[in-house]
Computed example of a mutant assay.
Amino acid sequence: MSVSELPAVASRIDKKLADIDARVDWLYYLSPCDNDGMWQRFQESDYTVNPVMWYPEIPDNFCEIKEALQNLPIDDVEDPSLHALFYEKRMELELQVDLVMMRESRGFMAISVELFGEAEPSLVHSARQILNEVPIVSGPASDANCADIVTAADKEINAYRAEVPDMASRVEVMEDLNSMMMVHHGHLKVAQSVKLPSARISPLIAHEVGTHVVTRYNGRCQPIQLLEHGLAHYDPLQEGLGTLAEYLAGYLPPRRLRVIAARVIATELALKRQSVKEIFHELHDEYHLPAEDAFDVAVRACRGGGLTKDSVYLRGLRELLAYLADGGDIEFLFLGKFAMGQRMLIKELLNQGWLLPPRIIPHHLRGERGRERVKQVRNVKLEQLFQLEPML
């Protein structure tokens, strides 16, 4: 399928915004260091001493990024759809710079709410319903480690690379990571200390590679470069697609759905200036989250001074299920990284010939099994989105 070139001014603005987006890397500067050490010291204190968080050093010239953003001539972009997307992205990047510069200050939380929203009452209600209704089960033993994940992830990426040889993603093992695994700048990073049930490897790879790597690759194939890096507020849809991928790949256990719900409760408590210790005890004592899960969720909610980003996982999943229940096309959502609220603009640009359909579709959506599971999930309620046993 042929695609039209963007107007010269729009193309220049798009490239500059994409370049700046790669420089901001706000999550890196808000991710605490020595996560394993924090957990060990918290255990040794019998869960009584709040952890001390320290972060990567912020470059002296970081705030100069805002000046570069403000100098972009976005008003020279004539197409209204492109102008809207670029203007919205510039505003988001300016807020991300402010978020980093306000780290550990009282103004941090207000900027976080502006960027990621808060734990709104309807979302808190959904989270509590999940925590109260979804069963507490231990699940299979953690019999897999980092090497097992790396082997499986390499195999998955190589399978995609057989179809699209220019996919440049790789797997990297990290000594200190805020999560078991994550995609950063298109590469899968895996925590060296990770241990998990082997039945969870394929679903988590469907989340990280089948969603985040695939949408980034498809975005890189688009004339609009920002679809590789992410248009404004793309996180809820990305994380909704990623979590749903775990279900479609055959194993989203109750514990996983409960953790995602607990992140909303932790966000609500962080907005009330509750500490890591206080949030931990609410999640562990009242909602019976395993201690390590409760600590991880609490730390994530308090990082930087109260980061509300973790509320997007449940919000994005809820929006995605509503979209699918209404008959929405799931494959369309993989053409790049954008927000659910931007889908009409994206469709308009697609119809105008300035965008392409997804070049590759995730493995978990393919074949008869993939189509059947998508069909089934269109009728699944949020609190029902879990599997007691692997269905791989």
Rank of each mutant, 00 (worst) to 15 (best):
D148W: 00
K375C: 14
D235H: 04
M182E: 14
H207Y: 02
R170E: 15
L85I: 03
P56W: 09
V190H: 05
A325G: 14
L204N: 14
P357S: 04
S202V: 12
A249L: 04
M91T: 00
Q387I: 00
P140Q: 08
S2G: 14
Y160N: 02
M167R: 01
F108Y: 15
K16M: 12
D154G: 01
R315W: 14
S193Y: 14
P253G: 06
I58F: 08
H284W: 10
L237K: 08
V213H: 11
W354V: 05
F116L: 03
F332Q: 01
V297L: 04
G306Q: 04
A147H: 12
S275F: 11
V100Y: 07
L314H: 11
R273V: 02
V134H: 03
L349V: 09
G316M: 06
R300M: 12
H185F: 12
L69C: 09
L131D: 01
H284G: 02
E368I: 08
A270P: 15
E282L: 04
D143I: 04
H184G: 00
Q70L: 10
L6I: 13
E94R: 07
H207I: 10
I201Q: 03
A245T: 08
K89I: 00
R200P: 00
V124F: 08
D154M: 13
A147S: 15
V49K: 03
S198N: 06
M1E: 12
P236I: 03
E348D: 12
I20L: 15
A298Y: 06
A141M: 05
M91I: 01
S4H: 10
R41Y: 07
P197W: 04
D25G: 06
V113S: 05
E114N: 08
V150M: 14
F280S: 11
C63S: 15
T243N: 13
A291L: 03
V264Y: 05
P357E: 05
L349F: 00
V52N: 07
K381H: 13
P236S: 07
G370R: 01
M344H: 02
P135H: 07
R200H: 07
G328K: 07
I149P: 01
P253Q: 03
Q387A: 02
R300E: 15
P59S: 12
Q129L: 11
L123P: 11
G186E: 13
F332H: 05
V276G: 05
S142Y: 04
N61C: 06
D21E: 12
V183D: 09
C146V: 02
I111T: 12
L231G: 07
L196A: 06
C33P: 00
M174C: 13
D14S: 05
F386N: 08
S45H: 04
S311R: 02
D176N: 13
C146E: 06
I330D: 02
V134Y: 00
S142T: 15
L269T: 06
V209I: 15
P56N: 11
N71V: 04
N145L: 03
